[in-house]
């Protein structure tokens, strides 16, 4: 039985006077304990909305509808009431966000932000909590943790901020960690360090990791299983190696082909007949799906 089993997840946003947007449309995937699962796709394909839906963090307003199921053990994360969700968040399932600066409270020292998680889920307070927080910072590779605990987010470098956020996320040894583009806001050398840290943490603690990214390099380096999302749907789901060796869906081919290469020259991907030469490149946004001709060269068959 998988640790997390997402079945037919759908999220729609309805707004009066505007067309209903189906951001996630029947997404299914599962995560085994200790496994690293990638959710890959371009901006707007529903990666982040999927993660927010799993965490129960989508705004609870009229117009936001979440369907399907996400079994985590015996609980359905999508149907659990808010009170139980608050206990689950941070303790069993935790999340790492994209922008480490804005995800930390600017006016509160790092230490307070780390210890509040420890106090909430592990009942640690006072000196014990501080010692544990320092230990956590140490584990995520922040040097001189005792001093850093007293500092404010703006005094830390970008990489260190993300490390601090990771420390908060793994503070209670969650069974499942969701990382939503954890390296996008960081520069390349720091990206590599953060990915290595995540890989080590996951290996040492047996935490399962859902890695949300648009970066195929990250996928190649980390994930056991990969789900390719496009326009709110999983278009291909495969183990890592077969995905890169023989992608089945044309969109996956396109995604792989969109990685710039030194030898391919400018615009090579756009001219490549394999993923629809002459079609305007999908730049940053998926158009409404019914209106979109599938970018499939096999369509004429």
């Amino acid at each position: 039985m998988p640790l997390l089993d997402v079945k037919d997840l759908s999220v729609t946003f309805a707004r009066r006077g505007q067309r209903t947007v189906r951001a996630v449309d029947g997404v299914s995937f599962s995560v085994e304990a200790g496994e690293v699962v990638g959710l890959v796709g371009e901006s707007g394909c529903g990666k982040s909305v999927t993660s927010l839906a799993l965490m129960g963090l989508l705004p609870k307003q009229r117009g936001v509808t979440v369907g399907g199921s996400a079994m985590f053990g015996d609980t359905d994360l999508l149907k659990t009431d808010e009170r139980t969700m608050r206990d689950i968040r941070g303790r069993d399932v935790a999340m790492i966000f994209q922008d480490p600066l804005s995800s930390l409270n600017p006016v509160v020292p790092i230490g307070v932000q780390v210890t509040e998680v420890l106090a909430r889920h592990r009942g640690l307070t006072g000196a014990k909590a501080t010692a544990e927080a320092a230990d956590l910072l140490n584990r995520v590779g922040i040097p001189d943790p005792t001093r850093r605990l007293k500092e404010y987010p703006h005094q830390l470098s970008g990489g260190m901020r993300q490390r601090a956020l990771i420390a908060m996320a793994v503070a209670c040894a969650p069974k499942l960690l969701i990382a939503d583009e954890p390296t996008t806001a960081l520069d390349v050398t720091i990206q590599a360090q953060i990915l290595e840290l995540l890989r080590d943490l996951v290996r040492d603690s047996g935490t399962a990791l859902v890695m949300i990214t648009h970066d195929l390099g990250v996928v190649a380096g980390m994930c056991d299983t990969v789900n390719v999302l496009y326009a709110g749907r999983v278009v291909e789901s495969a183990r890592r190696k077969p995905l890169f060796a023989e992608p089945r869906h044309p969109y996956t081919t396109g995604l792989l082909g969109s990685v710039p290469r030194l030898d391919s020259g400018k615009g090579a991907a756009a001219r490549d007949p394999r993923f629809g030469a002459g079609r305007p490149a999908v730049a940053g946004r998926v158009r409404v799906r019914p209106a979109l001709r599938p970018p499939c060269r096999r369509l004429c068959r």
């Binding site: 608050r86 966000f97 995800s103 409270n105 509160v108």
Partner: peptide
């Protein structure tokens, strides 16, 4: 704010989020 979302994602109680964040 993102940091409110982040704190919520860690299960921090609403009263505490309101007061300390």
């Amino acid at each position: 704010g993102d940091y409110v979302l982040a704190a919520t994602s860690l299960g921090v109680k609403r009263s505490r989020i309101a007061l300390t964040h």
